[in-house]
């Protein structure tokens, strides 16, 4: 192994054999050390939430990773390359520049009996964000999200002063066997927390002034997106063995969980809140 060990012979065979061995050792060690180093850096830079979302996104089935411009028919099929962060997406910027988002004529979209006010912006993970006059942003669960968890058994809200990241965890909801995190639609500092009964959960203050919300769904996008979400819900329910009563356009009840006691609610919520 080393020249000073008994029986060591300098020779081609030794060079090749030990050379290959030490190279392998070096490559494997470097790989692990590099991964450890990068992990420590990511932890120090508080990138955990971002990484958690990227890891989740990677595990989503391909049909759940589609670009929002597929809903509006601009693409036939396209997988989002930015993990739903359209702020990084050049394609999105170009498309928005060409066709600015249409404001809906209504003040709220009515879908399957659920209301989606158009003054809110929607995140793909069923949270809405509404810019307030005082510069903060209110964050809550959209109507579909609320009905999925009904009256939640428990909600873990962050402390005021905590920082939330867009696509990072905003808060946790427990309902029956389900334990899901709800993705934050925006970046910022939590200034106030609400409660399930009040219809909103967080008030978030942007960290440096203006809040970029290009990545959120708005206006006429909402309806096609929701149509698709209802399809996903049906699929999730049927996968869990629940009778697909929504197929005929039935209206989801206020507490869907109660209607499907036999379904694995954790799986359904995981599917709908984009947590594989």
């Amino acid at each position: 192994m080393f020249p000073w060990n008994y029986g060591f012979h300098w020779g081609a065979a030794s060079y090749i054999f030990l050379g290959a061995f030490y190279t392998v050792l070096a490559v494997v060690a470097t790989t692990v050390i590099f991964a450890v180093f990068r992990s420590r850096r990511a932890l120090a830079a508080h990138e955990t939430e971002e990484i958690r979302w990227h890891s989740d996104f990677h595990d989503l089935p391909a049909r759940d990773r589609v670009c929002r411009h597929v809903f509006t028919g601009e693409f036939k099929s396209r997988e989002c390359p930015h993990a739903f962060d359209c702020r990084l997406c050049e394609t999105h910027a170009k498309l928005i520049a060409a066709h600015p988002p249409q404001q809906s004529d209504e003040t709220e979209e009515e879908i399957f009996g659920m209301s989606f006010p158009v003054d809110c912006l929607y995140h793909r993970g069923h949270a809405w964000a509404r810019p307030e006059a005082d510069g903060t942003v209110t964050v809550g669960l959209d109507e579909l999200g609320s009905r999925l968890v009904g009256a939640p058994d428990a909600v873990d809200l962050p402390q005021p002063g905590a920082i939330v990241h867009a696509n990072g965890t905003a808060f946790h909801i427990h309902k029956r066997e389900a334990d899901v995190r709800v993705l934050s639609p925006v970046d910022g500092e939590v200034v106030e927390t609400g409660a399930p009964g009040r219809g909103w959960y967080l008030k978030v203050k942007p960290i440096n002034g203006q809040m970029d919300m290009r990545h959120l769904l708005c206006g006429t996008e909402i309806k096609p997106w929701l149509m698709r979400e209802m399809e996903r819900l049906q699929l999730a329910l049927s996968a869990e063995g629940a009778a697909p009563t929504l197929a005929d356009g039935g209206v989801p009840v206020a507490d869907i969980a109660q209607s499907y006691p036999e379904a694995d609610w954790d799986a359904v919520c995981g599917e709908m809140f984009l947590e594989p």
């Binding site: 392998v24 490559v27 494997v28 790989t31 692990v32 590099f34 991964a35 450890v36 990068r38 992990s39 990511a42 932890l43 990138e47 955990t48 990484i51 958690r52 990227h54 890891s55």
Partner: peptide, 27 residues
Amino acid sequence: RQVPSFLVFEYELHKLVYVLAGVGTFL
């Protein structure tokens, strides 16, 4: 994966799995 350091390490290590696959093939 609820433990942040596990989550992050898994993510970073998985990115380098190509290297390990290559070394594994050689070995």
